[in-house]
Design a protein around this nucleic acid. Structure first.
Lengths: 337, 337
DNA sequence: CTGTTAGCGCTTTCAC
DNA sequence: GTGAAAGCGCTAACAG
């Protein structure tokens, strides 16, 4: 960034002191209206813009929020980011974005990058690796560095931190009940990435619903681990098993399930109903369009910002607040009755 | 951000001067090895971390890049952002993201927010509104404020600025040729958002290919403006027109076209071949999977960062550099022969 | 080898 | 109503 007009230069031009200029620009009532006018006019004339960095150094706050998301190519997280961006901007905050790519090493680097005074607080979604490990020292360091932070979507089991979560348990419970009541007893959950906190909750919710209907079996939860085997695996499963309803733990699995079922000439939604999670772009555009649990990621992002800003306002209070955003089940062609 | 250890406090603790600490931490050869060791150990002990804001103020550079993208819920831009993020982080830069939502008013606000000294340079993709107007004063202001900036994807007609673009003309030309040669003469372009520079180029490329085969008609370019009418419009078009091949100017139109054609029992790819633009998530997952021009958005983002960093290195040179990233045509089921 | 000092651009207390 | 001066945390010329 090249040379720019400063308060100092303005003062010289106007033949007043630096502090007068500063006060005038901030509408201080210590300064006469005429001076204020004169200063402001000259400032405008010379295109003066206050230096944010200097202000930040002085005020010890940057009006900037750091965000760490696991994956930016995932529509769900992008919606979250969108919600965060929007709300932050609305509240006068800038957003500095980091992507962990689901790796704990990147996450550590991101945390280090963000805890050097550039941001007032951090909005943070733990990576998949982080959720699969018990070593959370890098996150404890956040507390040690006194960096206000809130988590979103995924939770940190041991560390108690403020955050905003989706009600994954209930969403899954609810969707499963729908499938059982409108489909039948042969309801299954397609699961993957089961190490993630959100997935665990969804599995619990599914099981709970199945249990209440006395139809939970060991085989009810179908874990599908390797992405490249998805289509083959599902094909074999659907060809060999009578299925009324499938709840899938993420969007991709729902797309694959619907695709394969269609190819196998299984009638959707008449004989098979499908509900996915994380209502993304594909669910709406696919043919047939796929019903999905919409976690209202944008709203979660917004709420995370709200939480953060409240936290920044009451820095003394170390109260831990956990907000829950209710999801909504969106019915499309794979469940149309 | 709460109180943190500073150089000053370290100096007090160590009973040396502030500058000694500073120099020691920066491995200055003015300082004895023992002192350096002592200082560093104490710094580590107390969890000292240099204050980035103070450094920035001193050095007049923030190691931060500003990014303005029109839409973060668009997979293409997200790929771009991903490429930018990755490369920037690799080069030791932070990224501050702004979203214009295709609105000139937001874009102005974003530019103002980013030109207050927080970023060393701006990577910028003009909003749709900006591309439809001739009022580019807010962008000229960037130059006036001496903020280094590069554009990406979309260009600024009048203002000459460095940037990285996709070769939209050639990609469209190439894809059209493919359709003509492997499909037939009844090839059409489905177009929308025609005010965008990239769309104009694609239309030109399409027309050029059609012209060279002496089959360009007024009706060859089918403009489809309102999103809500897409499906109805396309249905009527396909029902009333004999079509061998369709090139669509974006991803959504290709999805809609394939969906409707399938419903109309048109055999894809045998009687109708379809190629979309902006190879997104849906193209790959759709059934049939949709062939698409992949603009390698990630690479564009990376190149934009490279360009920016070179610019920052040679701040004296005001050379305008425009890079072009070649796209690649990805064949999927809608063009499989 | 270490320390003093000035200064990055800004705010703010305290004098005048 | 205005100005001088200190200081936010850091670096770097210059002195010692």
């Amino acid at each position: 960034m090249a040379k720019r007009m400063t308060i100092k230069e303005l003062a010289k031009i106007l033949n007043v002191s630096i502090s007068t200029v500063s006060k005038a620009l901030n509408d201080s009532d210590e300064i006469s209206p005429e001076t204020i006018k004169r200063v402001k006019e000259t400032a405008k004339l010379y295109g003066y813009r206050a230096n944010f960095i200097a202000k930040s150094l002085k005020s010890q706050s940057t009006n900037t929020l750091g965000v760490i998301i696991p994956d930016v190519l995932n529509y769900f997280f992008v919606q979250l980011l969108h919600g965060i961006e929007n709300e932050a901007r609305k509240q006068g905050y800038n957003v500095m974005t980091c992507i962990s790519h689901e790796k704990i090493s990147n996450e550590k680097a991101n945390i280090i990058a963000l805890t050097n005074g550039q941001v007032d607080g951090i909005l943070f979604c733990p990576s998949e690796e982080t959720q699969n490990t018990i070593d959370l020292t890098h996150i404890e360091e956040l507390s040690n560095n006194n960096v206000p932070f809130v988590t979103f979507d995924r939770s940190l089991h041991d560390i108690k931190a403020s955050g905003v979560l989706s009600n994954d348990f209930f969403s899954a419970y609810d969707a499963t009940n729908y499938l059982i009541k409108n489909g039948g007893e042969k309801t299954y959950l397609f699961a993957s990435h089961v190490g993630l906190s959100v997935m665990k909750e969804r599995i619990k919710g599914f099981k709970q619903a199945m249990r209440e209907h006395h139809i939970l079996k060991d085989s009810s939860v179908v874990e599908i681990s390797e992405e490249k085997d998805y289509e083959v695996f599902i094909k074999e499963f659907l060809a060999s098993t009578k299925v009324d309803g499938i709840l899938t733990i993420d969007e991709l699995l729902s797309v694959k399930a619907v695709k394969i079922a269609t190819k196998l000439k299984i009638n959707i939604p008449k004989t098979l109903k499908v509900i996915g999670f994380s209502n993304g772009e594909i669910s709406a555009q696919f043919s047939p369009s796929i019903s999905s649990v919409d976690q209202r990621a944008g709203l979660m992002g917004k709420e995370a910002v709200t939480l953060m800003i409240e936290m920044l306002k009451n820095e003394n209070s170390r109260e831990v607040v956990v907000k829950t955003v209710p999801a909504v089940l969106i019915h499309r062609e794979t469940t149309k009755i």
